[in-house]
Design a protein around this nucleic acid. Sequence first.
DNA 1: CAGACCTGTAATGATAATGATTACAGGTTG
DNA 2: CAACCTGTAATCATTATCATTACAGGTCTG
Lengths: 139, 139
Amino acid sequence: MRIGNRFSIAVHILSLLGTFEGEDQTSEWMAGSIGVNPVIVRNVIGMLRRAGLVTTQQGAKGAHIARPLKKITLLDVFRAVETEDLFSSHPRPNPNCPVGAQIQTTLEDIYGRSQAAMEAELKATTLDKVVKSFKVKAA
Amino acid sequence: MRIGNRFSIAVHILSLLGTFEGEDQTSEWMAGSIGVNPVIVRNVIGMLRRAGLVTTQQGAKGAHIARPLKKITLLDVFRAVETEDLFSSHPRPNPNCPVGAQIQTTLEDIYGRSQAAMEAELKATTLDKVVKSFKVKAA
DNA sequence: CAGACCTGTAATGATAATGATTACAGGTTG
DNA sequence: CAACCTGTAATCATTATCATTACAGGTCTG
């Protein structure tokens, strides 16, 4: 199990856009702050764009955050870049065994509640808070 | 991101041990109920053994649950088979950028709280409940 | 308006994790 | 003893992720 770096990268990108608002931020410049390849940055920005969190214009530098930082939660970011369910079940339990026949339902219930708990925690933090945490620390 | 099937398989194995207590349950028989290869079953049982959840005897069939089902939570099972952190961060943020220099701390905080929320949910369910859910449904 | 500069995206390759399978050493049991 | 199991190593196929190259098409500035 493991959630890849895409989510971290997405939060980093949005933090840069929020922190250095108005300045030129090319994908290469952002890549330098994040420590990854510029193409990865452009791909993640594409996911954020498709989720409605940023707007971009092909050929023009940078990206713009689509709505106030207070109205973007980390769950929004998470959903933008991670589409699969957190848990997965073994796909072929034996329907002729009473346990095998019922375990999927049981697991789905548990998985749903567990992922919901994690997502509720992500939903409680807005990008606004994340960006402000940098400013405070930097002061 | 995705938690693999090991956790599902582990819950399935413990459910079988709890449901068909006292009966012969070879790794091959369990594999038939789960729908995976017997070697996978033996490997997962090995992880459960190292976590102190089951006992086994080499050469002898099956495995025994090491303590009452009421005292085994799904979090115990989860920790037995999933050792890595749920989230991972991009490993090389630029320390010369104010965002890059501080984002890891911010992300670690968020990740810790999110994983804790998920684990709290897992901790709230005992294997006892899982096994009883089968009996009720089967009745 | 022309050239330099960007973005968006496809394609390829390296690396890592997972599950399937084969093989076999060593313990168990009737 | 002989059949049967477990524990574990080794291989292989598959899949996901990230790095990188390449390039089409839009932007912007002198």
